[in-house]
Simulated assay, not measured.
Amino acid sequence: MKEITPKEVETLIQEGKKLNIIDVREVDEVAAGKIPGAVNIPLGTIESYMNELNKTTEYIMVCRSGGRSGRATLFLESEGYNVINMSGGMLAWEGDIE
């Protein structure tokens, strides 16, 4: 499983890179703040959204601490998707939130 640090994600955003970030936390958790531009797809619903994801697009998976996003990353990876887990999750995020 590929991983990226929150600091690396923040740097890429600051450099103006177009990132595809999927936040797998529950809706109420995301309401408290998420990485700008992140799309919320709760972990329990990820399988039903797979047909909306492109296998050639790189996705960065995010959750509160890195556990749920890790599970999502492993699952999507096993289905042939290009995914990276953000280690440490939102607990380690120091960048802007929306």
Score class of each variant (00 low, 15 high):
A32K: 12
A32M: 10
A32G: 02
A32T: 10
A32R: 09
G33Q: 08
G33D: 08
G33S: 09
G33V: 10
G33H: 11
G33L: 11
K34W: 00
K34C: 00
K34G: 00
K34P: 00
K34E: 00
K34T: 00
I35A: 01
I35Y: 01
I35Q: 01
P36L: 01
P36E: 00
P36A: 00
P36R: 00
G37H: 03
G37Q: 04
G37T: 03
G37R: 02
G37N: 06
A38V: 01
A38Y: 00
A38T: 01
A38C: 04
A38F: 00
A38W: 00
A38R: 00
A38K: 00
V39C: 02
V39G: 00
V39T: 12
V39S: 04
V39K: 12
V39I: 15
N40Y: 13
N40D: 12
N40E: 14
N40H: 13
N40F: 13
I41P: 03
I41M: 09
I41G: 01
I41W: 03
I41T: 04
I41Q: 02
P42T: 08
P42K: 08
P42R: 09
P42A: 10
P42D: 10
L43I: 12
L43V: 07
L43A: 07
L43H: 07
L43W: 07
L43K: 05
L43M: 14
G44I: 05
G44F: 07
G44K: 08
G44E: 06
G44L: 06
G44T: 05
T45E: 15
T45N: 14
T45V: 13
T45W: 15
T45C: 12
T45A: 14
T45F: 15
I46S: 03
I46R: 02
I46D: 04
E47I: 14
E47G: 08
E47F: 12
E47M: 11
E47D: 14
E47A: 13
S48P: 03
S48M: 14
S48L: 13
S48F: 15
S48A: 13
Y49K: 11
Y49H: 15
Y49I: 06
Y49L: 05
Y49N: 11
Y49D: 06
M50C: 07
M50S: 07
M50G: 01
M50I: 08
N51A: 09
N51M: 05
N51C: 02
E52K: 15
E52V: 11
E52H: 11
E52T: 14
E52I: 10
E52G: 06
E52P: 05
L53T: 06
L53R: 06
L53N: 05
L53D: 05
L53V: 09
L53C: 07
L53G: 03
N54H: 08
N54A: 07
N54P: 04
N54Y: 05
N54D: 15
N54I: 07
N54S: 13
N54Q: 12
K55D: 11
K55A: 08
K55H: 11
T56M: 13
T56R: 14
T56F: 08
T56H: 13
T56I: 13
T56P: 02
T56V: 14
T57V: 12
T57E: 12
T57H: 03
T57N: 09
T57D: 11
T57K: 11
E58I: 07
E58R: 14
E58V: 10
E58G: 03
E58C: 05
Y59T: 02
Y59D: 01
Y59E: 03
Y59S: 02
I60M: 09
I60D: 01
M61R: 06
M61S: 04
M61A: 07
M61I: 10
M61K: 07
